[in-house]
């Protein structure tokens, strides 16, 4: 009984930061807001170019602890699911590019990273808490949004489901 209670307590502690989207999300199942930016390596990133792929668009920062927990999974998913059509794009909410570049080099991040700004965040309904991750289907519609510390297993299953669905 004591062990059971400890396990329950642990589950509560580990999930305390998770914030499921409760209010109806005006962006869900709508065409994703499009943008063009330049990544850290000076390559142009036009979201429209990824139509036909499943895109995981994640807003993060180098100092954001939950984001740092997610990143190794995103790197693995880019390797594992990239050939099936997954493209991960990171939008850093750091104030400067230099620490972001150092961080992504150190951790061998294998997907493009952009430096975010307020207009881009506002396109996606405002990003006033990290991390925030959007899954965009092959047709360019937002299929899911995850706020805060999210169950990565559920996110991965959603990616697998989106990858199985054909684009139009």
């Amino acid at each position: 009984m004591r062990g059971f209670l400890i396990c329950c307590g642990l589950v509560v502690v580990l999930t305390a930061g998770a914030v499921p989207a409760q209010a109806p999300d005006p962006l869900l199942h709508k065409p994703t807001p499009e943008f063009v930016r330049t990544d850290l390596e000076d390559h142009p990133i036009d979201l429209a170019d990824y139509r036909g792929k499943v895109v995981l668009l994640t807003f993060w920062a180098t100092w954001c602890a939950p984001c740092r927990i997610e990143m190794p999974h995103f790197i693995r998913w880019q390797n594992q699911y990239g050939p099936q059509g997954l493209q991960i794009i990171g939008v850093s909410m750091d104030d400067d590019a230099a620490p972001v570049a150092a961080f992504t080099r150190k951790h061998r991040v294998n997907y493009p990273i952009l430096i975010g700004d307020a207009p881009l965040a506002e396109l996606y309904g405002g990003v006033l808490g990290l991390p925030v991750t959007f899954l965009i289907d092959r047709n360019g519609n937002i299929a899911a949004r995850y706020k805060g510390e999210t169950g990565l297993g559920a996110m991965e299953r959603k990616i697998q489901s989106l990858l199985r669905a054909p684009g139009q």
């Binding site: 920062a61 100092w63 909410m93 750091d94 104030d95 620490p99 975010g116 700004d117 307020a118 965040a121 506002e122 405002g126 990003v127 006033l128 990290l130």
Partner: peptide, 21 residues
């Protein structure tokens, strides 16, 4: 984050961060 501050902040507040750095 400054990007957060530019999107919205408490009325009358000033920005000075991020103080983890």
């Amino acid at each position: 984050s400054r990007v957060f501050f530019e999107q919205a902040h408490i009325r009358g507040s000033v920005y000075a961060g991020p103080t983890s750095q």
